[in-house]
């Protein structure tokens, strides 16, 4: 065991980790940040997406020690300072971009990474970007619509299922 320290959602955070501890386990079990979900644990589903030094990564496929000294952002850090939902989260609510909600933390973190690099993505660009985020409930239409809306674009042309 060794001490691992990083900045999580703007605050210094540290905990104990073995070499083999995943970043997802460190966030959930050492720091109590259970908003980062572990769906498949095989790097396929994207429920565990967080940002490390500004880049979207799958926290189940990164070791906690690899994130030593990094800036980590999780779903817990996404709301506005007053606790209200941020633009992306609000758009997911407004456009029914979730049903069971299990994939939503990863979807929101991937959407945030996309919009940072590409503030006005096309529908096709959104769908391509979300290749690594699986949702078994919504059929994706409303997720895509929510991300379009969060980027300030017209969503009337997107299929309504």
């Amino acid at each position: 065991m060794a001490k691992v320290s990083m900045t999580v959602n703007g605050k210094a955070a540290s905990g104990e980790a073995e070499g083999r501890m995943l970043l997802s386990s460190f966030l959930r079990e050492e720091l109590g940040l259970t908003g980062t979900h572990v769906g498949c644990d095989t790097s396929q589903c994207g429920a565990c997406v967080v940002h490390v030094d500004g880049k979207a990564v799958k926290a189940c496929t990164m070791l906690a020690m690899e994130a030593e000294g990094s800036e980590v952002s999780t779903i817990e850090g996404q709301a506005n300072a007053d606790g209200s939902l941020n633009v992306i989260q609000q758009a997911f609510q407004d456009h029914h971009g979730l049903q069971c909600g299990f994939c939503t933390p990863g979807m929101v973190m991937s959407a945030a990474a996309l919009l940072k690099d590409n503030p006005k993505p096309s529908e096709a660009e959104i769908r391509h970007y979300l290749e690594g985020n699986l949702c078994r409930c919504t059929g994706y239409h409303n997720i895509v619509k929510a991300i379009m809306a969060a980027s300030g674009q017209d969503v009337s042309s997107i299929a309504a299922e």
């Binding site: 790097s43 994207g46 997406v49 880049k55 979207a56 990564v57 799958k58 496929t61 990164m62 991937s110 990474a113 996309l114 970007y129 290749e131 690594g132 985020n133």
Partner: peptide
Amino acid sequence: IGDPAVRNR
């Protein structure tokens, strides 16, 4: 290759 999160690592 893979998806965006995989490409970042």
